[in-house]
Design a protein around this nucleic acid. Sequence first.
DNA 1: TCCGGTAATGGTCTACGTGACCCGAAGGAG
DNA 2: CTCCTTCGGGTCACGTAGACCATTACCGGA
Lengths: 230, 230
Amino acid sequence: MVGGAVTASLAVSTVIFTLLEHEGAQRLHLPLVRRTREPFDGAEALPGGWIADDEGLEEAARRTLVETTGLRPSYLEQLYTFGRPDRSPTGRVVSVIYSALVRSPEAARVAEVHNVRWAPVDEVRGLAFDHDEVVAYALWRLRAKVGYAQVAVHLLGETFSLGQLREVHEAVLGRPLDPANFRRRVTASGAVEATDEHLTGGRHRPPRLYRAVVPEGATGPFQTTAGPAA
Amino acid sequence: MVGGAVTASLAVSTVIFTLLEHEGAQRLHLPLVRRTREPFDGAEALPGGWIADDEGLEEAARRTLVETTGLRPSYLEQLYTFGRPDRSPTGRVVSVIYSALVRSPEAARVAEVHNVRWAPVDEVRGLAFDHDEVVAYALWRLRAKVGYAQVAVHLLGETFSLGQLREVHEAVLGRPLDPANFRRRVTASGAVEATDEHLTGGRHRPPRLYRAVVPEGATGPFQTTAGPAA
DNA sequence: TCCGGTAATGGTCTACGTGACCCGAAGGAG
DNA sequence: CTCCTTCGGGTCACGTAGACCATTACCGGA
């Protein structure tokens, strides 16, 4: 320890988004864990935990995610750091918040185990600490980001139809999109590339399958859409 | 302390941007302080310091800014939190980075005092810790933000001509902008409102002075362009 | 006093992205 | 074979932004 530091506990929490069937449509959900100790014993909270001595911040986010929910996200980015002195009634806690996307099959795989409830995003209320505010901000960021970055593909599998991708955008934005215009925008953006395969077994015309294009220069010191890698 | 926390020191650092005359044009500068102790003794670094027990993160950023440079920013937002375990050779340090804008007169006021050097942004290299990377990311964010939010006004005074505002955008983006198109875009956005005054004393046609419009709904739990208020 | 230079300001023309809307194509279900 | 629905290609209208032109207003020098 260098000296002069504040006496605070350092934690990570993660807002995890995934798509689950709800009332006949794909809707955005996130996992909540029920607290079993003070403060806020019995209340629901975002998954998270303490940062270990020898691990980085993102590393800590991934580890606590596996420990508390069993989930391995396909996308993870730092969101914001909360550090009001009075955030926690039992002592000072500074929380680095991450935002994550999880593919639906992965979410379904762990839906039954762990002490986890999947809540539709617009029904999330009454969380411990300031987590209500955190969720609202994460949702706002995701909605903004889906407009200019191809983050939505991380909620789907390796290949997908443009109809599926459109459903993801509709679930995130909470409003219907015109299929033809959506197709035009996405294909023109170069964010996806067509494969030779089609999705068969549906009841109607089989859609062509597409694959996400990994953007150039996404490696290196930092991705220009998410933040530094450090 | 709640328990389980990592043994890390919590620091804030701030990337401060301002406009200064350099080689005949307004160019973006930032203040650097020279370190007087290990690690990186003698190297330049971003202004910052330790977070105190009873202060919030943004509060700590403002305090350390005044202590190390005397500057009071007109705009301040949280940027990113760095926490790689090996960032500092002398022990673990987690740094919450803030990004700030300072009006030119304020910058000139403190340019002579303090242990501060004003460096043009594109000549910043060889900083202590991972601060080179931090500056690059802050600059990328500022350039992106100037395109969709009216942050540039925070680099100018109470009133300004559209030519001055255009110079700010040119300095931030590093490329010339068409004066007529810039005027049309800015006035149509409603981000500024005209005053009845004109800037006299120039060599040419006296430009009308404008004032920044405070956006509706910028108060409340969080500003949708900067992040949560907590 | 007049004139040239330059910035301020207003306007036009065009390219482009996007939403609204249309229609044929392709497959399953009855 | 017919109907229903989605896929996927197209048109049209409109709003925004860049390129570019014209006029205005001031200073400083001839």
